[in-house]
Nucleic acid binder design. Structure first.
Lengths: 264, 264
DNA sequence: CGGGCCGTTGACGCAACTCAATCTGCGTGG
DNA sequence: CCACGCAGATTGAGTTGCGTCAACGGCCCG
């Protein structure tokens, strides 16, 4: 397998709008930059863009309460969602009654794509705490995509991004230790905050220990112990969901190499 | 999480062409039924369909030798592949040099989708033994998709299928025992054979123990031990890669419930 | 015939799970 | 306002599933 370029598993939120430079403009509504749908239409005229957007976006901003369902597994699918604020989890329930959190979605992230194939959602989505989302009418998105090729391309890319993301998670679950997994979730969230121009020195993680554990395939106790250990090592301060003084570089190093030494 | 319909993790190769009944016709070239790209054009006229196909498919049938690369991680992306015969694996290489097999692809399966986002493949793909594939020109596929809506929809669905598949694997890696994981790979392959109208009473698995172990996040020895155990339990006969007398229902039961009792 | 790869089997150790006890914070109702 | 209950989080003790290490057999190929 020599010759292939290696990939950075956490820091690989690769969305380089190189081939569509015009879509790089940050969205005026939500400053979610490239991720947000509206930004896509920079190429079209302003009025055409506004018209398309209006028909595409069901609710420009919908508030979702704490721990509220957006859709449930097997509900008929016809809308995609973009997180505006807060965070959302998607959960897969299998035939033996076992639940698996397949992903956490943060502002700018698109979710609900898993419903496209069967026309029914493959997962249940639930907000973690309060959140706001915007809802995109998928049938219309498909229709408009046929005459706005850059939009079609964008949707393809968003889906491929989701595939890449899941592949990375798969790799982490298979080959990384519990410590590295926990570091992964923390890092992904912190890096997300940084991309969104927020401070990473003081923040609140949106998910419970239980959710984190479930997503990472660990026991709650293990997550708790590891967070305490990180604290003892001076990687961060954490009280409940309040994180401060996080050593990003240190954690990243730890994620990569598992820190063979000095982890007792 | 009550109210959601549970999903069968192995047997969920859901591709119901309900909304596009015309695309249900089996492909005349390869009898891969709904999965194959050509079948898609059933709606168009025969001549138009042939014309489109000709420009879309780079090689109607390309032979790939044993253990040969189709593309490598970070190669520039411009073609998708469909397996015609044999099998293919895709491998993700991360920054710490760790390899993860992200999927096995069997006849009719589409792979290479992970390159769409960055315009570079996110994984390396390699044939397991000899195989034949057909290569689809993605830029042309995108172009044609804009004026053949059913094709656009098909591509969306294929991508969503990949997302669903990865979510299921994620769930299995997190919550299933080593035995259930091995059962999963065996079942997925056997069910694939059945869909393709082959016998499931006598067949050869395409991957080595090492590949299976890597994909499932297990040690080779564990896979070996579990296969021996399955044999002792009369679930199947296996010598090398030759499988016979496999008890599909039994394995499925075992996959679901881990068979609390009688597994020593 | 010898070296390499693949697969199998056994002995042993450890990372992470399970069980159980305790603590904290928070909402609810008396 | 405090008491209570409950869910979330922490910590310790004991257990275990699976990884690691090591030895060995079969098979292919040079």
């Amino acid at each position: 397998m020599n010759g292939a370029t290696k990939i950075d598993l956490v820091n690989a939120e690769t969305f380089t709008p190189a081939s569509h430079p015009e879509s790089n403009a940050p969205c005026l509504n939500c400053r979610l930059s490239e991720y947000c749908l509206p930004a896509l239409f920079a190429a079209s005229s302003q009025t055409q863009r506004d018209h398309l957007l209006k028909s595409l976006v069901r609710q420009q901003e919908a508030h979702v309460l704490k721990r509220q369902y957006l859709f449930r597994q097997n509900d008929p699918f016809n809308t995609l969602y973009i997180v505006r604020s807060g965070a959302v989890k998607t959960v897969l329930l299998d035939s033996s009654g076992c639940e698996q959190i397949t992903g956490f979605y943060y502002p700018g992230d698109l979710f609900g794509l898993d419903g496209i194939n069967t026309h029914h959602y493959a997962t249940t989505s639930m907000s973690l705490g309060n959140a706001t989302v915007c809802a995109v009418d998928f049938p219309k998105l498909e229709k408009i995509s046929t005459f706005v090729p850059s939009l079609q391309h964008h949707v393809f890319r968003m889906m491929a991004r989701e595939i890449e993301r899941n592949q990375r998670v798969m790799s982490i679950l298979n080959h990384k230790t519990a410590e590295q997994r926990v570091a992964f979730v923390l890092l992904r969230y912190a890096l997300h905050l940084r991309r969104m121009q927020h401070t990473t020195q003081e923040f609140t993680i949106p998910m419970s220990r239980k959710d984190m554990a479930n997503h990472l395939g660990l026991a709650v106790e293990t997550v708790s112990r590891i967070l305490s250990r990180f604290q003892r090592l001076g990687m961060l301060e954490i009280r409940g969901r309040q994180v401060s003084a996080m050593n990003l570089a240190g954690l990243q190093e730890h994620f990569e190499n598992g820190d063979e030494h000095s982890m007792q």
